[in-house]
């Protein structure tokens, strides 16, 4: 057993909630507030894990399965993500397709759990979630396919740890397009502005938060934690692309990686502070734009 392969996953499991808190601190900075402490997400999780449960009379076992499958999917996704030059726990050719489909599995059950409550708000959230996910899927696939061709490697670990800084000189435009497409996918998949507003408390405008209105206690903790894991997984891909630092010492590589993760969260927070949520009808244009960026990257790579 190669213990080094467990490090990226363990780091993700431990540190994922921190990203949310960096985003929140950034938003607080822009708003002129001090913001919650960095460890606030952990306090929230601990509080939620200690609570009892209220379940709706309408629900069935599907409702209870939703958070569990969602969390399991997020953990499975994390097992495929390399970090700081270290390979992931599981790495094999075309594992990025498995990555996308395991994400889908979690989403499918979250959506079903939302529909299980019979609430119009949750139905609305579920409908929008599948709408945007279906459009984000081609962008994700095309972007990852472009990366696979670029690095002549088929597994996520191979792609991301084989990346050299020199590649940016050589294939800069294509890489930049891929990063752009993946950033949009990250915003959409993690329900951030401009696709969805995690802070809104008007049910009609919520997507992800709308879907989980009826979850509480341990279930809600699972949902929030898996949202953190998903954010970590997609961020790690982007950071490994943007900062392919290979200083030679694991400590330096890891420091660069973690700094990159923090920087990306600041970027997400900045986007959230400077933009309003797009009108729902405009979001498809954004996602199709990401598809176009990824397709363009693919063409540039093949040229």
């Amino acid at each position: 057993m190669n213990w080094a392969a467990c490090v990226p996953m363990a780091a993700g499991l431990a540190a994922a909630p921190l990203l949310t808190s960096v985003i929140n601190r950034t938003k607080a900075f822009f708003a002129g507030r001090q913001g919650p402490p960095l460890l606030q997400p952990y306090y929230d999780l601990a509080k939620l894990l200690g609570k009892g449960a209220v379940y709706s009379r309408t629900t069935t076992w599907v409702f209870r399965a939703g958070p569990v499958v969602g969390l399991a999917g997020a953990v499975g996704v994390l097992a495929l993500i390399p970090a700081a030059g270290l390979p992931a726990l599981a790495a094999f050719p075309v594992d990025w397709i498995v990555f996308a489909y395991v994400l889908s599995l979690g989403r499918f059950f979250t959506v079903l759990a939302a529909l299980d409550t019979g609430s119009a708000f949750e139905g609305m959230g579920a409908s929008r979630e599948v709408f945007f996910a279906a459009l984000a899927e081609p962008a994700l696939f095309l972007a990852l396919a472009a990366l696979a061709i670029l690095s002549r490697n088929l597994s996520l670990s191979g792609i991301l740890s084989g990346l050299q800084p020199g590649l940016w000189m050589e294939k800069g435009p294509a890489l930049a397009l891929v990063v752009g497409a993946l950033f949009v996918v990250l915003l959409a998949e993690n329900a951030r502005i401009p696709v969805d507003d995690p802070n809104t408390h008007l049910e009609l405008t919520m997507i992800h938060e709308g879907m989980v209105l009826d979850h509480c206690g341990v279930d809600l903790a699972f949902i929030q934690y898996s949202a953190g894991l998903k954010l970590w997984a997609l961020s790690a891909i982007i950071v490994s692309l943007v900062l392919p630092v290979r200083a030679g010492s694991p400590a330096l590589d890891s420091a660069a990686f973690l700094a990159g993760m923090a920087g990306l969260s600041v970027a997400v927070g900045t986007v959230e502070s400077c933009m309003a949520r797009l009108r729902l009808l405009r979001v498809p244009a954004l996602l199709l734009g990401a598809c176009a960026l990824a397709a363009l990257a693919l063409v540039l790579v093949l040229r």
């Binding site: 709706s56 958070p67 569990v68 019979g118 206690g217 341990v218």
Partner: peptide, 22 residues
């Protein structure tokens, strides 16, 4: 995750109610 939830929820209050409708 399912095991953890069962363990955490054992012995705690577990109610049923209407679906939240604002």
């Amino acid at each position: 995750a399912a095991g953890l939830r069962a363990w955490l929820q054992a012995g705690r209050s577990r109610e049923t109610a209407e679906t939240w409708d604002c």
